[in-house]
Design a protein around this nucleic acid. Structure first.
Lengths: 248, 248
DNA sequence: GTGTTCGCTTGATCCAAGTCAACCATAAAT
DNA sequence: ATTTATGGTTGACTTGGATCAAGCGAACAC
């Protein structure tokens, strides 16, 4: 008779939900490739789940680092601040992706992580992750891969910022989002942007007006349909063509 | 009577030189923080040393990844290539720094590593490094820090490319080089650039002409003295001031 | 409802860096 | 010693994206 004990039910549900072993993101997230038995050991470690409301910080630059975070649901941005007040968005993160890897280096976070919609995260105490990954080879190797993937991603962004024109950057950005939504089982052709034009611009090294103009231009040329934050991709190949446009 | 056996002498010297335990870079490189006994175990692993001549590749994008490389002496650049021929330098690496971390992700290298002067590297077979870092906590943790530091560095470059003007970028670049030379016991105020203006420009998202003009301007303003690749920093604070110049 | 705020779009103008081009310096090749 | 190649500097001009500015539409508060 669950109805008579709503609170207990809530708790047990939450305990079930928090386990990696039955998280539907396990193929994207840290548990990737682990056996059932290994998964259960990871479950012990990933005990704390936390809700972060839209606009709130998951962590701030300068805070002591002691855990990395897996996004269970929702959407985040990370940004870095320069002393003189300038800032830059360094990435957008969605379900199944890890946050906080930058903090390992100095044992302090070096950027801010802010929820762009109400989100849920799993905290993974880092020292315990190191212990466990000494015991589970697969986990160790996968964690190394995740860190390395982050480095490769960053190189992509450097390429984008260093060599691409405004429209190429935005095309690359949209294609990347589309691909990541697809990997999570959502439509590749239709999605809502969680971030503002200004945040997109900050990430792409452009001003919000330039981002807005590029959206308008893509729409005029029939590549996409834009209505506020709702994006429909009408011509993927058109967008891809925009990217390889100008040779060295 | 060493003179009578020059070849043997050479070999034994080289064996001695190859050990992490008496490498003068151990405080900068992977061995950082290890005990003597742990160091000796790392020595077993880092058995292969290789010379790379100026202009030669240490590895190429697409090659299978199986080792990371510690720079023993010399200077490298890494670059990524886009399908359409555009390329970008993603970093410059000097003695004590690690190369190849990007390859862990896909088990293939994703960039090219090219020696900018005759160099020597130590190859560290990655699977053996994983084994050893399961056994030596300090090594495991330090390796994680090194990877994380690379991510933080990349964020810095993103900031540079996304929000800074040409002269700020070059000032940041020179200050960074100076600081890294200092950490290696060289002069902080005087050094030779190992890369061309074009390579600097590629790294900073600028054209070589812009880099050249910025050098000239710094010289006019008395911040540095430039003679080809020989740089003397005359006014560190002047350069630093250039960076924080314009607020958001 | 009506005002207020925030995010977005669009136009007009400006400027930092790119492009094109000529020339110079150093080092290697003959 | 002279040629050739490579890398660097400088000038004139162009341009893509920034800046400044006005106005619009959706969401929310009252």
């Amino acid at each position: 008779m669950p109805q008579t004990h709503p609170l207990n039910q809530e708790i047990s549900l939450s305990v079930i939900k928090t386990a990696c072993s039955n998280c539907n993101l396990r193929e994207l997230c840290l548990p990737y490739g682990l056996s059932l038995e290994e998964l259960e050991r990871l479950d012990d470690l990933v005990s704390t789940r936390r809700r972060i409301k839209r606009g709130d910080h998951l962590y701030r630059a300068g805070e002591v680092f002691d855990a990395i975070y897996a996004i269970r649901s929702g959407f985040f941005k990370t940004d870095v601040l320069l002393e003189d007040g300038r800032d830059q968005v360094t990435g957008f993160q969605m379900a199944g992706e890890l946050l906080g890897l930058d903090g390992i280096s100095t044992e302090h976070h070096t950027c801010n992580a802010i929820a762009l919609e109400d989100s849920e995260i799993c905290a993974i105490p880092f020292s315990r992750l190191e212990v466990l990954s000494r015991e589970i080879h697969t986990l160790q190797h996968h964690f190394h891969k995740v860190m390395s993937r982050e480095i490769v991603r960053d190189h992509g962004v450097m390429m984008l910022l260093g060599t691409m024109r405004a429209e190429e950057r935005l095309a690359a950005f949209l294609l990347n989002l589309s691909q990541r939504f697809t990997a999570r089982g959502f439509s590749h052709a239709e999605f809502y942007l969680r971030m503002t034009r200004e945040e997109i611009g900050s990430y792409l090294g452009l001003k919000l007006e330039t981002v807005s103009r590029a959206f308008s231009r893509f729409q005029e040329e029939g590549h996409i349909a834009v209505q506020q934050k709702h994006i429909r991709i009408l011509n993927v190949n058109g967008l891809k063509a925009l990217m390889n446009h100008r040779a060295a």
